[in-house]
Simulated assay, not measured.
Amino acid sequence: MIVALIVICEVGFWVLLAAGLGARYVLRKPRLGVALLLCEPVLEVVLLIATAVDLKNGAEPNWTHGLAALYIGYTVGHGHRTVKWLDGLAARRFDGVEPVQPPKYGKERAVHEGKVWLGTLTGAATATALLLLAIAYVGDGARDDSLWAWIAQAWKITGIHGLVALGYTVFPPRVPAGKDAWGNDLGDLDEGARAPEPTGKRL
């Protein structure tokens, strides 16, 4: 049941996202678009309640409950970033507005990667909190090994991602001559000047 709900929530996420962006850019109803996008957290609440009910009804804690926790954690940590990225693509497609691009080089890239890692950290912390609640809810040390394994997996992923982000801090990609941190040509800017950060439509 939990696996089916995860699939339903994932499909629902993309359906609501497409509907929200369609309302905003195709129908030109931004308020309706925002309202549809705000419905997405409801999917995670439904999944959380279903997981708790499944455990309450005597289901053995297993990988499906751990996966549900990680899915919710990912949505908390990276959901807004995903929506923002797709909103930028829609703005370019329908309004001709170039989306905000992440920096490619230098300390700016290192800062960006650090922020992305903080999203992963937030997701792992969220998943861990949910899994610890599930462990306490079950109250049987012999039945919760799979949940502890998912906690370890969440922090393993976070650690690997953290090392990647740290690599950009220690060895930031060098900015090519004549370009800024976003890869834009500096043109006639004075030597040492920095081109303004790209702008674009935001949510």
Rank of each mutant, 00 (worst) to 15 (best):
V170D: 08
Y71E: 03
A69G: 07
L16I: 04
V175S: 00
E98A: 14
A129V: 07
D180R: 00
A59C: 05
T126L: 03
N57Q: 15
R92P: 08
E44N: 14
G159N: 03
E191M: 00
I2F: 02
G119P: 02
V83Y: 10
L47R: 06
K29E: 15
L47H: 02
D144A: 14
R202H: 13
G106D: 04
A193F: 02
I2S: 01
N62C: 15
A91I: 01
E44S: 14
G200A: 05
A90P: 03
A91D: 00
P198M: 01
K104G: 05
Y71G: 03
H80T: 12
L36N: 02
E60I: 13
A177I: 00
L27Q: 11
I151K: 01
A136D: 15
A18Y: 12
Y105Q: 02
A142E: 15
R28M: 08
G22V: 07
V76K: 03
L163F: 10
R194G: 08
L48N: 01
V26K: 10
L37G: 07
E197M: 07
A4L: 15
Y137G: 04
G159V: 04
L16R: 04
L17M: 09
N62H: 12
V45N: 10
P99F: 07
A59Q: 09
A127I: 07
E40A: 14
N184M: 11
V164M: 13
G106S: 11
K179A: 05
P103V: 08
A19V: 03
F171H: 09
V138W: 06
G20D: 01
L118E: 09
E98D: 14
R93Q: 13
E10D: 14
A35V: 10
T51P: 04
A149K: 01
R143S: 07
A4V: 11
V15W: 10
K107A: 15
D180K: 01
D54R: 10
L189W: 00
W14F: 12
E44V: 13
F171V: 15
V175Y: 01
L89K: 14
V138K: 05
K84H: 14
K56C: 12
K104C: 08
G167W: 12
